[in-house]
Computed example of a mutant assay.
Amino acid sequence: MATDYDAPRKTDEESEDSIEELKTRRNDKNSGKVDEDEVEAAESFELPGADLSHEELTVRVLPRQADEFTCYSCFLVKHRSQIAVTRNGHSYCVDCAD
């Protein structure tokens, strides 16, 4: 919503809204909220240290591409343009070369 900062502001005397009107508007805004079942909401939360032994993780490993390398210091896969130095046959990225 655009606001015209050059327009004159309303003073308290010019305001036509009564306290009762404002209270009913506030109540109307809250009436549109959806009640959520607490049990269903709690099931979606993962607690730290929770037992995840029954969960299964599926990972698809892609082969190394011709234009990629793995930094010997941080072990991140990066583009060949990120090679800063190669020592003893090991490549280091720009971030780890210092």
Rank of each mutant, 00 (worst) to 15 (best):
M1I: 13
A2R: 11
Y5V: 12
Y5W: 15
A7R: 15
R9F: 08
R9K: 11
R9N: 11
K10E: 15
K10C: 04
T11K: 02
D12C: 05
E13L: 12
E13W: 05
E13A: 13
S15M: 09
E16W: 03
D17P: 00
E20K: 06
E20T: 10
E21V: 03
K23F: 05
K23Q: 10
R26Y: 13
N30H: 08
S31T: 10
G32W: 07
G32R: 08
K33T: 09
D35K: 14
E38F: 07
E38N: 07
V39D: 15
V39W: 05
E40I: 03
S44Y: 03
E46V: 09
E46G: 03
A50L: 02
S53N: 09
E55V: 09
L57Y: 12
L57R: 10
V59K: 13
V59Y: 10
R60Q: 11
R60V: 12
L62R: 14
L62I: 03
P63C: 00
P63Q: 01
R64S: 00
Q65P: 00
A66T: 06
D67V: 09
E68K: 02
F69R: 01
F69V: 06
C71Q: 02
C71N: 01
Y72H: 12
C74R: 04
F75L: 12
F75E: 14
F75Q: 14
L76W: 05
V77C: 10
V77E: 11
K78T: 05
R80E: 12
S81A: 15
A84W: 03
A84C: 04
T86N: 14
R87E: 12
H90E: 14
C93Y: 01
D95P: 00
D98Q: 11
D98A: 08
